[in-house]
Design a protein around this nucleic acid. Structure first.
Lengths: 188, 188
DNA sequence: CTCCTATTGACAGTCACTGACATAAAACGA
DNA sequence: TCGTTTTATGTCAGTGACTGTCAATAGGAG
């Protein structure tokens, strides 16, 4: 009996987040989530490939980064281009905060979900590397830059979490400077 | 009927690697692996917390890094200390190659195993960060340095794979220089 | 030889996930 | 408006990963 349409996903997401938050991830059943959303377990697995995925958005971030990196000024270095891309997407992070924050609380205490998050991060890193290679960066260097940029971004996000009064863009900028500081400490 | 003792684990590991390599990870059953090793499925899960773990060693690398980082010369910068630690553990990588190589072949074509590997890498990153904090590095900086060092190491390992004639230590050194190159390209 | 402990087997059960088929609502063309 | 087709869901059965429990046996300590 299909009545409402695309909001089934949203209902399941919210049900899952609520249950995970209340009882914990491993003790909540996929059937429970489905029931709370008013559907069947089978329907749950038609919308999400597995139980974990209900907490993660599709990776629009990877696609957006891809576009932004191709739009970055050609005279920018590889690392600068990626960091600029992240900076121009900072508003996206700030909007998603409402859903991302409670989700992160659940993820941080659930090893299985942490693994999935790492996989997502790895996918983003890969997307960055490919975008850089389209800017004529060598594959090896592109991988290194992508991974480094991810480290810088994570650093910026962490700082932002501790001091949300400063806009995220500025935290990204400071994180970049922190990298420069650590990577050449023995300089004259 | 317990006859042989601690080599049951080794038999299961080898059986698993062989089966994964022949038929693929997802189509081989835990029961199959156990049968091939001459034990029961239940015994398999007594030795390994889950099916994936049979391909991964316990993280002795994290512990060794921890020791090495604490032994590094005090005047070394944070990043230099970690890279030095990796360099002094390079022989360890070169010895484990025999088991690690076929295992990596299986892992690289199995998403579920890639996730676990990412988790292992994250655990190592965390260990590095903690070791650095014991050297009086601030937590935020320690995380950034640890993540950056992991990126550098991955870069070095990748280069080593493509050119095994050069010793791994030198690849690590070159990777470090590559980082310096990318992190300050706009320098006067 | 006997007791104790570590390891395994045997068995039952839960839960994540999948394939196959039926059904009803919704979208669409005539 | 009506019949057809498409789409989202329900139902059911089945596989496989993992866990708890208890019994049985081998090996070592005394």
């Amino acid at each position: 009996m299909p009545k409402d349409r695309g909001d089934v996903r949203r209902r399941m997401r919210e049900a899952a987040l609520a249950l995970f938050y209340e009882k914990g991830y491993d003790v909540t059943t996929a059937a429970e989530i489905a029931a709370r959303a008013g559907v069947t377990e089978r329907t749950f697995f038609r919308h999400f490939p597995d139980k974990r995925e209900v907490l993660f958005n599709e990776n629009e971030l990877a696609e957006r980064l891809d576009v932004k990196i191709s739009e970055a000024a050609p005279d920018l270095g590889a690392l600068e281009a990626v960091i600029w891309a992240f900076q121009s997407l900072a508003p996206m992070f700030e909007e998603n905060l409402k859903f991302a924050e409670p989700a992160h609380a659940v993820i941080s205490r659930t090893p299985a979900l942490q693994e999935r998050q790492l996989a997502k991060a790895a996918a983003i890193t890969l997307a960055i590397s490919e975008a850089l290679q389209r800017r004529d960066i060598e594959p090896g260097t592109a991988n290194l830059v992508a991974a480094t940029a991810m480290a810088v971004t994570a650093h910026g996000l962490q700082a932002w979490k501790q001091d949300p009064s400063v806009p995220l863009v500025d935290h990204f900028g400071e994180a970049h400077e922190a990298l420069i500081a650590i990577s050449s400490p023995a300089r004259r």
